[in-house]
Amino acid sequence: MVSHSAVQASNALIASSLPSHLVAVFVGATSGIGEATLKQFAKHTREPRVYLVGRSQAAADRIISECKTLTPLGNYTFIKADVSLIRVVDDVCKQIVDREKAVNILFLSAGVIELKTGTSENLDLSLALTIYSRTRFIVNLLPLLQAAPALRRVVTVFAGTKEGPIFPNDFGCDKVSLFNIHSIRGHMCSMIDFSLEAIAKDAPSVSFIHDYPGFVDTGIFEKTSGALASVVRGVSKVSDALFRSRRERYIPIEQSGERHLFLATSARYGPANGEVLGTPLGREVAPARDSCGKVGGGVYVVDENLESASPEVEKLLGQMRQDGMREKVWKHTEGEFNRITGLMRDMEGLIDS
């Protein structure tokens, strides 16, 4: 476990060990973990350039005002968008590409607990936000990430280390019962991991992290609707009854922001090419194991204690990898992108279909 004091010590080194004018894109930053991490980023960096992508103008105005108090010389741009739609993601990325030559951090935390609700592009809403939209952001902004000096990092917040078998004939969870929550979560986690691995093969200078934040009281259960959200709310209430107070169950939102800033900036999670990027490692912090179980491989699956996945999870992913599941996931994702936009990304980059 990486201690909270080690996290804070690492974050305190950002201003002195990383350059000014870091460029960060926060997707889903108008509430919850994204907002908390953005504020920590503003607090610890020098003259950052930040893009907030979300749906609420009012929330963005409030957050930008608070961030300017923390770092008056920071530059903050809000892009209002419904990122559950792949075509909207493409438009958002074009706006960023037109303005920036490099991006240091891509932080992805948009999501809802709502299955069996479709988007206008015929994707499940929850999977659209958690898997397809995030993958599209990474693909589109990858050239800017690869061009960045000092730090090149992608963090996607979901449920890393909770992986499970993938439904090989139901990638979009169209057939599975929405009451099979744990199996759905495991399926989604493994899809995220293999998507990151597929992209990372051609981006050895970029680090990719899929993390599980633990129980953070973000209010997501109250903000989402649908049958699955109702089930999860019920389970959460029963679980809460086992604790003397919610405080014993949940990680404070500010502390979660600190942890996620650590994920986004610490040299613990280095790229596959061996570069040492990020804040220096403290005495108690060692380089992390990647999703294949080796040190410094570039794609990391991380739990709420900022530790790598268990040997059991590594074994499960390894078995599915041997069965060609990574390639199957990527082929499916390419197919969805091609269906929606007419553009396809193979392992070499974006190509016209």
Rank of each mutant, 00 (worst) to 15 (best):
V329K: 11
F158A: 05
G342Y: 09
F208I: 08
T333K: 05
P168S: 07
K294R: 03
R249W: 04
R55D: 05
Q146M: 06
K43N: 11
K223Q: 14
L13P: 09
A6H: 14
G278P: 14
K43L: 13
L263Q: 02
E312W: 01
K162E: 14
M191V: 02
R244W: 04
I14L: 06
G34L: 02
L18M: 09
E197I: 01
F179E: 10
H332D: 03
I351N: 13
I113Q: 14
G293P: 04
E314I: 14
P280Q: 00
V103H: 07
A60P: 05
A81T: 09
G270H: 02
S239R: 01
V50L: 15
A150T: 11
H260S: 07
S225E: 13
M325H: 03
D170I: 02
E254G: 09
L317G: 06
G160S: 12
G172K: 12
G335F: 01
D124H: 00
P143C: 04
R289V: 02
I340W: 05
V154W: 15
S120C: 14
L22Y: 11
E222H: 11
D202N: 15
E314R: 02
C93R: 05
K315H: 06
L277P: 14
V216W: 00
S239D: 12
D217P: 04
N180P: 12
V157Y: 00
F337A: 07
I64Q: 07
V235S: 07
D174P: 15
E197V: 04
K201I: 08
L125R: 11
S291A: 03
K294V: 12
K201Q: 12
H21M: 10
I181E: 15
I105M: 11
S183E: 11
S3V: 05
R268Y: 14
S236E: 05
R283V: 05
G318S: 03
V301G: 13
D90M: 13
G297T: 02
G28R: 01
R233E: 15
S84A: 08
